[in-house]
Write a protein that binds this DNA or RNA. Structure first.
Lengths: 344, 344
DNA sequence: CTGAAAGCGCTTACAG
DNA sequence: CTGAAAGCGCTTACAG
């Protein structure tokens, strides 16, 4: 690697290192002549300032750490994209880490991000806050939670009011005369898992639907558990006539398993997914979803974090969720469909 | 932000900064006593070494830049994931940049990555190599291309032999008595766009199928152009009976438009997509695809880059592609289906 | 407006 | 095995 430093630039421009530095950082205390000569030297030498050295002095890296739970989950891929775009607009670069829904990988990345001296961190957290998240708090590193929160840790956050969408979904299904709504829940160690499950439980009770506990299958927010969930629910003596999946990967797993079992979505069983993934609308029948704006979530997260970095103490943001009804749940529950479901 | 430095650790441990540093970096020239006391101090003070300062001295950041073309394209999300996992296994962290299929954003990120002094860069390139990619070469920064290459720039690369899969797809469709195969091409400014188009052209000729140039629609690898492509192809006086899309986002757009036009995939028209995205198998009918292993691509990319970083000059890797036939293309072309396609 | 110099937090020969 | 010191590439008061 050939290395061009500010010293080379200064020499080529015939000015001191200090002057070169001032020109580079846009300090007004520079003459037009110096500005010109330094600019020319930068151009000619193809100089790229060393960000490490720069931030070592100025304590700002213009770098934001983003820790998502699972990059391959389209929701988080979209979130990464929107956070990145918002950050870019403010002159920040994103360092992306992927926890893979595992606390140990989260801790590893968090420690790396601390060592990289990012100016702040946006995290969709795993676990109970006993690990590296403690270090973030101890060091008072500007941090905000996105999508999820950790109980007992008081940081600004951008989350979705998922309860509203879940309630709408249950009411919608009740309106189609479904009385046994299966629920593929997220892990109860994660705030969104808990919140959505609580909303389901309450909505089912409020609508006088079956509260049979075997209608709930606890998954882990990943695709495979959506498949197992469908399998378990459809083996019940009284299987549900509708299923609600608490996130999109589990919905994908559910769809795959229903196909494998030859159960027709929208006819034999109704299906609703949390998270609005582009191609859910392209399935045949199209999938009803509980939608929330990942665009707004990313933008709000960056804005909140920048406020914290600037020493502010912003209020948390809660974004709405909304049911979008499509064909997968718009056929009323046909009488007798329950017993006609084949079990293999 | 509270800051703990190696000086604090040294003081707390009662050793010099040099000794503390040696313990931290695993230098064997340390006594068991020092190791213990330093470790205890690190623990007690929750010390995280400043990666900036460290790399300023040692010229290694243990950081790899990854520039993908479009994070929201599941192919690149999967690639990011596999590169990340492979890098993690070698003690490297990934700095992810997203070009959004735009050369100016690519240049911006590339300059940032250079300034961050990443140890190497893995890039799925945009453009003709006139921009920031030049700086990479000038500075001899270890760089490899992944998925795509740039003509005239001789860097190690990991690519897919997409020709093989395309040929298989065309032969497969020819075997179903399709004679007019529409092709939604990628941009001819991108190597994969060119390679796949060339393979289509040759396969069509070799199989004595229609070489009508209006059967080719030039898209931009993004979803919207897949929709326009379907629209344009189906408006032809003699529309194709099968369509091949050169990447997955365009295939998504194609599926969406076919739904909108009420053209039944697998019955009215056959459809095959390049890239094997998990949920393509979940569509109804399931989508035939040309599959290539993003897992292997990511791993090979990291391995190649590490060799370059270590001063080696590795051979480029070309991975295979393979047709996977599913329901979207397995009904033979029904006689007369051409004219029965409605045009709106 | 400019130059000389200190210092950010580390690592690493150099002596001992 | 250890300490003192130089230096990585910048920025930023401090004089002038």
């Amino acid at each position: 690697m050939t290395t061009v430093t500010i010293k080379d630039v200064a020499a080529a421009a015939g000015v001191s290192v200090g002057t070169a530095s001032r020109v580079l950082s846009g300090n007004p205390a520079t003459s037009a002549a110096s500005r010109e000569r330094v600019a020319a030297a930068v151009e000619r030498l193809d100089f790229h300032p060393n960000a490490q050295a720069r931030s070592l002095r100025s304590a700002r890296t213009h770098t934001i750490g983003l820790l998502v739970s699972d990059v391959r989950n389209p929701f988080f891929a979209d979130l990464a994209h929107s956070v990145e775009q918002a950050a870019l607009a403010h002159g920040y670069v994103i360092l992306l880490g992927n926890a893979n829904e595992r606390e140990d990988q989260q801790d590893r990345y968090l420690n790396t991000l601390i060592s990289q001296r990012v100016d702040g961190i946006i995290v969709a957290p795993q676990g109970d806050g006993s690990g590296a998240i403690r270090s973030l708090l101890n060091r008072r590193i500007p941090t905000i939670f996105v999508d999820r929160t950790v109980e007992g840790i008081n940081l600004p956050s951008v989350t979705t009011d998922s309860g509203h969408g879940i309630r709408q979904a249950v009411e919608h299904l009740a309106g189609q005369s479904h009385t046994r709504i299966g629920y593929i829940a997220g892990p109860q160690t994660i705030s969104t898992g808990r919140e959505r499950f609580t909303a389901y439980t309450k909505a089912v009770a409020d609508n006088f639907l079956s509260q049979d506990p075997s209608l709930v299958y606890f998954g882990d927010f990943q695709a495979a558990s959506g498949s197992s969930g469908v399998d378990a629910l459809l083996r019940l003596d009284q299987p549900p006539t509708a299923i609600l999946a608490a996130d999109s990967p589990m919905a994908v797993g559910a769809v795959a398993m229903l196909h494998r079992m030859d159960v027709r979505i929208g006819a034999d069983i109704a299906l609703v997914a949390f998270d609005d993934i582009e191609w859910f609308a392209l399935l045949n029948p199209a999938l009803s979803v509980i939608s929330h704006s990942v665009e707004n979530m990313g933008r709000a997260a960056v804005e909140l974090l920048l406020q914290v970095i600037d020493g502010g103490t912003p209020e948390s943001v809660v974004l709405p969720s909304e049911l979008i009804v499509r064909a997968s749940s718009s056929t009323p529950n046909p009488a007798g469909s329950v017993s006609s479901l084949r079990k293999n």
